[in-house]
């Protein structure tokens, strides 16, 4: 618990320094803000024992810019071409991750990926996913991304 508190406070202080600068006169405010932030984050998201696989996590993070580029280009093409209209569809997808913070974290990550936007809980434990292109196999893409995400964080699926 103490290690998690120290890690979060250090990361938040680093973010404070990146945003506001590291002038010595400002540091008391930065340290107080980082401590308050660490306390609030521990209250809302208690630490869990993650088995992070650095290689898989690096692959996940390095692929994100390329996926963001693909997602942006796909949306821009539909938005700017007057002959094309989006063909949206909401599908029910069955995740393998159990309900909880790991699944919530994956769904937040999935909202940044091309063509998918989680839109709440569906019937029978499914998750509703809004797809911009209704023809695409969104469920298969979500399952593949979930496996990559789970491998990076050492989660059981």
């Amino acid at each position: 618990m103490a290690a998690a508190t120290a890690l979060r406070a250090t990361l938040l202080l680093g973010l404070w320094c990146a945003l506001a600068g590291a002038a010595p006169a400002d540091m008391p405010v930065g340290i107080a803000a980082a401590a308050l932030g660490a306390w609030a984050s521990l209250l809302m998201v208690p630490p869990v024992r993650a088995r992070i696989r650095p290689g898989a996590l690096a692959t996940l993070l390095l692929q994100l810019p390329a996926k963001a580029l693909g997602a942006g280009i796909a949306v821009a093409r539909v938005a700017l071409d007057p002959r094309r209209r989006p063909n949206p569809r909401t599908i029910a997808w069955t995740p393998r991750l159990p309900p909880g913070r790991a699944r919530d974290a994956f769904l937040a990550y999935a909202s940044l990926l091309p063509g998918t936007l989680p839109a709440g809980v569906g019937p029978d434990g499914t998750v509703l996913v809004h797809a911009l292109d209704g023809e695409a196999d969104v469920a298969a893409a979500m399952t593949m991304e979930e496996a990559l995400f789970a491998r990076a964080f050492g989660l059981d699926v």
Binding site: A68, L69, A71, G72, I73, A74, V75, A76, A79, R85, P86, P88, T90, S111, L112, P114, G115, L117, A119, H130, L132
Partner: peptide, 19 residues
């Protein structure tokens, strides 16, 4: 242009992030 809220969120989250 997009017809529903979900599609508009795609525009805001995907294209604007890239921008």
């Amino acid at each position: 242009r997009f017809p529903d809220t979900g599609s508009r969120l795609h525009a805001l989250t995907k294209a604007d992030h890239l921008g």
